[in-house]
Write a protein that binds this DNA or RNA. Structure first.
Lengths: 236, 236
DNA sequence: CCCGCACTGTGGTCTGACCACAGTGGTCAG
DNA sequence: CTGACCACTGTGGTCAGACCACAGTGCGGG
């Protein structure tokens, strides 16, 4: 019993409320002052709990009044995980190489899995959106950061075809967390136009393989695509 | 420009300090009062930042005085991620089925990868430890929760053989986050002694395959092991 | 020499206050 | 009656200052 912090009461309470379905995504939490009274802790402690929930992507709080104000339960694990990942990468506890490898693993397996998924409007919509993204990325003179953002989005879309929310979330987190490093690498590259062109060719190859349900081909193309690009950086 | 919260200054500062190596794991942060003065924010805001970092597994703070007191930079992503995962599972945004599938994916791929890793004292130590865990789990009358804890530890150890910290971390998080659900499922099982016996047989089979570098066999055994056990629950 | 206790600085918590913000509802001019 | 306007109210965001428990530190007495 080493010091159960005051705010943990709220976290435990929320978890229970969520599990039992009393509160679900989209609903509002009671006001901070109300929670403080209810748990007999200070508002400062309540706020610490809210901060933690916010950092986890479980809650979004807004000022003002009316229905849109207050702490609303959301579920955005990927942005929160991405943030946490970035910080842990900064500590150098998580080597970039391992990140890339993990990402490769998730993405190739997702490609293999998506091969087996039945056709659906959802699937067609995703493929369509992915194709559009690629087209946008062909825009001449597109800023590198826009390119990378669309690039990340493209990969996440492909992963989502596997239909596994958890895998998709992990992919999104890894991607968002590393996008800064990607930009850093590329900014030191003189041959960016050629590189982006090659990347686009690879993207189209992957998309084509996925569309035609050639899972093995897609996975292999992804592997080549990712390792090739990662090889451009100096990994110091 | 929508309201940059006061405490984000500290988060950004810490990330920078970590990336540039000014601060690294194991070192202490300045005191809360000092940080408050340095960033010209209130101590309450500083504490919110520390809370967030704490929730992310980046910092551990302790009371008292001397070198052991204060906020120390650590790097324990797995416990933090596990906590976040559990909460998001509670919101039902992350279906258990997807969690199990993701875990299966990571673990089988890790088994395939570990096949290729060279021998090393590290590897031998891990295999030894895994074997010991299995022996402990054979103890008659072992409480179910102890069994599951060792079980989780066993799987994480196997995953660590692949030598990828990120994959290992994700596995550990998934495992820790779901352990509660596992216990819930098992507690409604009357044939637990038989089940645990079967699980142990499967564990030994997996360990044997890994030890002998039969990656495919290990992966297949893991797949069977996990899907079989997951099949015992009713997935409502 | 060693034991014990006051001292000091740390995080943990609380109180009470003020601010900016955004809906709400009333008022008043047209 | 209709519309624009504005004070009101409740929300989160921030702050200042205080007190507590805790754990090392170091001085003092035995």
């Amino acid at each position: 019993m080493p010091a159960p912090r005051a705010y943990t009461a709220i976290l435990a309470w929320l978890e229970d409320q969520l599990r039992t379905g009393v509160i679900s995504v989209g609903e509002k939490l009671p006001g901070e002052r109300h929670l403080a009274e209810q748990f007999e802790i200070s508002r400062a402690s309540v706020r610490e709990a809210i901060r933690v929930l916010d950092a986890m992507g479980l809650v979004r709080s807004a000022t003002g009044s009316g229905p849109s104000a207050g702490a609303v339960v959301i579920s955005e694990p990927s942005t929160a995980l991405a943030w946490a990942l970035r910080m842990h990468i900064a500590t150098q506890a998580l080597p970039i190489g391992d990140i890339v490898e993990a990402r490769l693993l998730l993405e190739t397996q997702a490609a293999l899995e998506s091969e087996k998924r039945p056709d659906s409007p959802e699937r067609r919509r995703i493929l369509e959106e992915a194709a559009q993204l690629l087209d946008e990325m062909d825009t001449p003179g597109l800023p590198a950061d826009r390119f990378h953002e669309s690039d990340a989005q493209f990969h996440i879309l492909l992963t989502s075809l596997a239909g596994n929310v958890v895998v998709e979330t992990m992919m999104a987190s890894l991607r968002e967390a590393t996008i800064g490093y990607v930009q850093e690498t590329v900014s030191g590259l003189e041959s960016w136009p050629e590189v982006s062109c090659t990347l686009q060719e690879q993207h189209r190859g992957v998309l084509q393989a996925v569309r035609e349900r050639r899972g093995e081909d897609a996975a292999e193309a992804l592997r080549h695509h990712i390792t090739w690009f990662y090889g451009l950086s100096d990994h110091r």
